[in-house]
Nucleic acid binder design. Structure first.
Lengths: 112, 112
DNA sequence: CCTCTATCCATAGGTAATCTATATATAGAT
DNA sequence: ATCTATATATAGATTACCTATGGATAGAGG
């Protein structure tokens, strides 16, 4: 049995940006949210999560602020920027287009 | 504007295997088929295609045979093996599971 | 008090997939 | 004669992701 991937490559940034439309969250919270909403199908490993957040910061798609959590811990809370919201729109529409295209190949490829 | 990707990473093997369920095809034909069925949304670059076919050969999921095309050209025709058919099933179900999971995140993430 | 689990951040190093660029070759059309 | 489409393949760069590691603290259970 082939090893089950944790994510569909290329979709992580989109998932993070979308998750942040609910409001500010810290990295760990983002990972938990994605895991829970996906019924444990999608797991964001720490080694994928934090580099991804650095990427998003660098692009100006999110901003980060150190704050205290409810449970009294230091954590970096991320918020979507206007540019990030725009980027999310781009990624969502590209993703949808891809999925539709893949669907056509998978559906039509079986007819001789 | 972010550069539009040619493929969703991680889906190429599945697309090739599925394309071969129609019957034997050579590499160039596989790429054309995917491009056309997807209405030009998915483009399989040569530098992605041939390494992918080598991978599939090595895994025993396809077999290759040199033949002549209708137009009198030398080309390597690929056929699905039994193992390849099984692998396609695995990849299809994993893909569907991933897409469903991503759909849940994208749908539910907007509720505050 | 001590240890374990969960919460929280981050980087280094490895692997794998894809793209760009290049190389080769020929059939058929202009 | 040249251009386009057909046909295969590899090298090198880039990027994304995962594994492994390191650190730190809150709270629970013993």
């Amino acid at each position: 049995m082939a090893k089950k991937p944790d994510l569909l490559p290329g979709t992580l940034d989109m998932l993070i940006l979308k998750t942040l439309t609910r409001g500010a969250l810290h990295g760990y919270g983002i990972a938990l949210s994605i895991k829970r909403l996906s019924d444990d199908v999608l797991t964001v490993e720490e080694g994928s999560l934090y580099p991804a957040l650095q990427r998003l910061l660098l692009q100006g798609w999110v901003k980060g602020e150190w704050k205290m959590t409810d449970t009294g811990r230091r954590a970096r809370f991320y918020t979507l920027t206007a540019a990030g919201r725009k980027q999310l729109g781009i990624e969502l529409s590209q993703f949808e287009q891809m999925i539709t295209a893949i669907g056509r190949v998978l559906r039509d490829a079986q007819e001789a």
